[in-house]
Design a protein around this nucleic acid. Structure first.
Length: 595
RNA sequence: GGAGCUGUGGUGUAGAGGCCUAACAUGCCUGCCUGUCACGCAGGAGAUCGCGAGUUCGAAUCUCGUCAGCUCCGCCA
């Protein structure tokens, strides 16, 4: 039934055909997007990754081809030989790039049949079905564009870095489990019973050792693995553009990366971006936006009322202000018309982030409306309105809590309000740097200091002196690149001195033996002449998602996993045979549940 | 670990206690059709409403559980 391509060679991709090919005999191949049978005349839209073109079958042109075309169905794979002809003026299809021409087929070969697909290729269907039949989903022009863009982004970044003298060097996928950070994916070693490799969360240690090795500038477009719960922008395996550079400080990295990102966006997607990017210290970003990844596409900045509330008669606010908490607010411009239900929903929304309440004041032409008004003196109300720059029509929100809750709740509320009020221009790209992150934070559960970035991050020179006395005050030479409220990449200048690294491990509560066991090879390497160095890694998937204006990185990854980390097409992960387990010296201890 | 949303012919949806012997569109099959462009016209097949319990005289519809997908919190150095 199926025919071969013998004696035929594709001459054109279908999307390339145009009036310039008029009169040529062409050989095209592809899938049947649709077939329109008019009885005495059959049209077939043939699709490949470059687009669609119309094939015409007429008994007057070729009887055999016409007869075969009657048996053709959706998604059949065809090769067609025919003449490119210009369409008459009234039959031109302006919706199709190739709509000025059509191919009069003189020979048709049905290279393969296809089952009726579960969904029409260009229709939007449930993601369940898309992932199960990913090969059909990937035939959709949108998905093809995503993967083509992905290729272009990777190539542009690679070209840029190559020109800057970077070397692309591979690092191991089977590596050593690290004690800090995300959960590792573990791989049992057959030849070393009871021992495990870990898949890399990032090539962090190897790239730093490459600096010790004198490679000077390293990069890699590399898969990384983290065994944590998934989100729209988080997959268990994802791709980073990973870099490390010797003999640089913060400024050098930021400048070079702005250049790289600018080049990549322009080259891959034709998007012009403004440099330099605005820079925020971590503190400033948290104060103004309640987030270390501020979305700068709209205003709605946070205002601080903590000082003002300390002496107020509103005990809820005063108590929080007096006990190290914060009272902050957002002016929801033009939201005074919100219903009680809408405000309740927003209160519910804020509670997700731990806020115990959401106080509000409605500002109208007739005056103010609020359940908390009665607690404030006239001059206090005056001061609040002044600080909010409130005008009639505004709705003022407050959250009072410990600083982390205030930031989380108001930071999220800010974005929610922007969405609700349609303040976000989808065509705009707002980059920013966030710098001077804290080096460490205290983990109440583990009852120790933990690294905000990772334990190799260098402290700011001027803060080094607080490492022993006041670790929470030490700022790091760490930086994140943020785009439209999403963390695109992050990195730091690293510690290159053995003594400072030791001090860091001490601070994190790793004993010398522990540090030696986990990182001894690295500490040893650092004793053989380590250059000052720093680096950064970009989330390639997120970068492409933002360029392609998608809501999830699943749409820019060929074979992504579901939220429960399964692959609906291959059914991974799956059980393995007892023999496989035996060879790996593994005994399962899994509660008998579903089959 | 937790919260929320969704699940109805192949696909996308409607139906929200009896009107359901489950509707519409599209796809699929058969026939007709020489200018369509996701062609059109006529006819046909196709669903025990994710799964399991329960409430009820009666459940696609209400309750509980469970499975799957999605969004989010925690987590993600």
């Amino acid at each position: 039934m199926a025919e071969t391509m013998q004696g035929l060679k594709r001459s054109h991709m279908v999307g390339e055909l145009s009036a310039a090919n008029m009169g040529e005999i062409v050989v095209v191949t592809g899938w049947v997007n649709s077939r329109r049978d008019h009885g005495g005349l059959i049209f077939v839209d043939l699709r490949d990754r470059t687009g669609l073109a119309q094939l015409v079958f007429s008994p007057e042109v070729d009887k055999d081809a016409f007869a075969k075309a009657e048996r053709v169905r959706g998604e059949f794979v065809l090769a067609a030989v025919g003449e490119v002809r210009r369409r008459s003026a009234e039959t031109v299809n302006p919706k199709l790039p190739t709509g000025e021409i059509e191919v009069y087929v003189t020979e048709l070969r049905i290279l393969n049949r296809a089952k009726t697909p579960p969904f029409y290729i260009e229709e939007d269907v449930d993601e369940n079905i898309r992932l199960r039949y990913r090969y059909l989903d990937l035939r959709r022009p949108d998905m093809q564009r995503s993967l083509i863009l992905r290729h272009k982004v990777a190539k542009a970044a690679r070209d840029f870095l190559d020109r800057q003298g970077f070397l692309e060097i591979e690092t191991p996928m089977l590596t050593k489990s690290t004690p800090e950070g995300a959960r590792d994916y573990l791989v049992p070693s057959r030849v070393n019973p009871g021992k495990f490799y870990a898949l890399p969360q990032s090539p962090q240690i190897f790239k730093q050792i490459l600096m010790v090795a004198g490679m000077d500038k390293y990069f890699q477009i590399v898969r990384c693995f983290r065994d944590e719960d998934l989100r729209a922008d988080r997959q268990p395996e994802f791709t980073q553009i990973d870099m490390e550079i010797s003999f640089v400080d913060v400024e050098d990295v930021l400048n070079l990366m702005e250049e790289m990102v600018g080049f990549t966006f322009k080259e891959a997607a034709g998007i012009d971006i403004e440099t330099p990017f605005p820079r925020f210290t971590y503190r400033e970003a948290m104060d103004r936006y309640g987030s270390d990844k501020p979305d700068l596409r709209f205003g709605l900045e946070l205002r601080d009322f903590t000082g003002m509330m300390a002496n107020s008669d509103f005990k809820v606010f005063a108590a929080v202000a007096a006990s190290g908490g914060q009272v902050k607010g957002i002016n929801a411009k033009g939201c005074a018309h919100f219903s009680r239900k809408e405000i309740d929903d927003l209160t519910q929304f804020a509670s997700i982030y731990g806020a115990k309440g959401l106080a509000y004041i409605v500002v109208n032409e007739e005056g103010l409306k609020s359940p908390i008004l009665k607690f404030f003196k006239d001059e206090e109300i005056e001061a609040i309105l002044h600080k909010f720059e409130a005008e009639p029509g505004d709705l003022l929100f407050f959250v009072a809590d410990k600083p982390s809750v205030v930031a989380a709740a108001l930071g999220a509320l800010r974005i929610e309000l922007a969405k609700k009020k349609n303040l976000i221009d989808p065509d705009v790209f707002k980059f920013a740097w966030v710098v001077d992150f804290p080096l460490v934070e205290y983990d109440d559960e583990e009852r120790r200091w933990v690294a905000i970035h990772h334990p190799f991050t260098a402290p700011l020179d001027e803060d080094l002196k607080y490492m022993d006395t006041d670790p929470g005050r030490v700022r790091a030479k760490a930086y994140d690149m943020v785009l439209n409220g999403i963390e695109l990449g992050g990195g730091s200048i690293r510690i290159h001195r053995r003594d400072v690294q030791q001090k860091m491990f001490d601070l994190l509560g790793h004993s010398e033996e522990e540090a030696n066991e986990k990182f001894g090879f690295m500490l040893e390497a650092f004793e053989y002449g380590t250059p000052p160095h720093g680096g950064i890694a970009f989330g390639l998937d997120r970068m492409i998602m933002l360029m392609a204006k998608r809501d999830t990185i699943r749409d820019v990854i060929a074979f992504p996993k579901t939220q429960s980390a399964t692959d609906l097409m291959t059914q991974a992960p799956s059980e393995v045979t007892p023999r496989q387990l035996q060879e790996l010296h593994i005994k399962l201890n899994v509660a008998k549940t579903k089959k």
